[in-house]
């Protein structure tokens, strides 16, 4: 046989062996998996995502959330640490990332499946059980408004800063201090001169702040003024509000429906 044919046929055979073993066999094994129903009449698990959440999957994958957040809870035998002279296992579950390990059935309806391979941030398999919608919105808008140490990007571009119409705030508007909302994505703080100008232009402001935050400080001194500024920055802007766009709503809807490690499954028992 020609040398070239040997190489091509050999390459084909070795390649086919791995395709058969690593792709076709598991494909056949997993292909007919069905949702689980604990007893007749119960809702099958996993449920299909709502339409909003499905749109949220698109936002999640377009922005590469997967590159910092996994969606898989590892087994109670995985992840070990020493505690009181004893080796313990099951770090993922102990961190509160899920009640049990996730198994293939949890991902039945996922497309794309967003398992992830990196934990720069915490695992999100069960994040829907941990936080409220308001928390999610504020955290996405600027994660550092909750955790100063967070290195997660701000997703302020999923939100709109707009003037308040007719003095009435939208119900969905974020309840955040002006330090986070004046310059979305950043933490804003005026310089001393700017702060002086703001105080001068709003005569009642200093007194109102002082009244709302009783304590021993002298607003005439620089320290006192800086302290006043700290109070002012945590108050909401009166004339502007930050509201989620449809994308932000969808993303949060998806995050809230992420509850992969709750419903008991027989095969997840260990």
């Amino acid at each position: 046989m020609d040398r070239g044919m040997v190489i091509i046929v050999g390459a084909l055979l070795t390649f086919a062996s791995s395709w058969l073993g690593l792709v076709l066999l598991p494909y056949r094994q997993l292909q007919n998996q069905q949702p689980y129903t604990a007893s007749p009449g119960d809702d099958p698990y996993p449920r299909q995502l709502s339409e909003k959440a499905l749109a949220g999957v698109g936002v999640y994958s377009a922005n590469g959330c997967l590159y910092c957040h996994s969606q898989q809870v590892r087994s109670a035998r995985f992840g070990n640490w020493w505690e009181g002279g004893e080796m313990k296992t099951g770090a993922d579950i102990r961190r509160g990332w899920g009640n049990r390990r996730t198994v293939s059935r949890d991902y039945l309806h996922d497309r794309p499946t967003l398992l992830g391979t990196m934990r720069t941030g915490p695992d999100l398999a069960n994040v829907g059980s941990r936080y409220s919608p308001a928390w999610q919105h504020q955290h996405l808008f600027n994660p550092r408004s909750f955790n100063a140490w967070s290195t997660m990007p701000s997703f302020a571009f999923l939100y709109r800063r707009e003037p308040v119409e007719g003095g009435k705030r939208a119900e969905t508007a974020l309840r955040l201090g002006r330090e986070w909302t004046v310059n979305p994505g950043y933490r804003w703080r005026p310089t001393d001169e700017e702060w002086d100008r703001i105080l001068a232009s709003q005569p009642g402001l200093a007194d109102a702040l002082k009244a709302a935050n009783p304590g021993h400080f002298d607003v005439a001194t620089p320290e006192g003024k800086a302290r006043l500024l700290d109070f002012w920055l945590t108050t909401e802007e009166a004339d502007h509000q930050v509201v989620p766009t449809a994308d932000a709503d969808h993303l949060v809807a998806y995050l809230l429906e992420l509850r992969k490690a709750e419903t008991p499954l027989p095969e997840a028992k260990e």
């Binding site: 922005n63 590159y67 550092r144 302020a156 994505g185």
Partner: peptide, 13 residues
């Protein structure tokens, strides 16, 4: 995290 933040085209992911 504040480097080039605010641009949707240059978000980390």
């Amino acid at each position: 995290p504040y480097f080039l933040t605010g641009s949707e085209y240059l978000t980390f992911g």
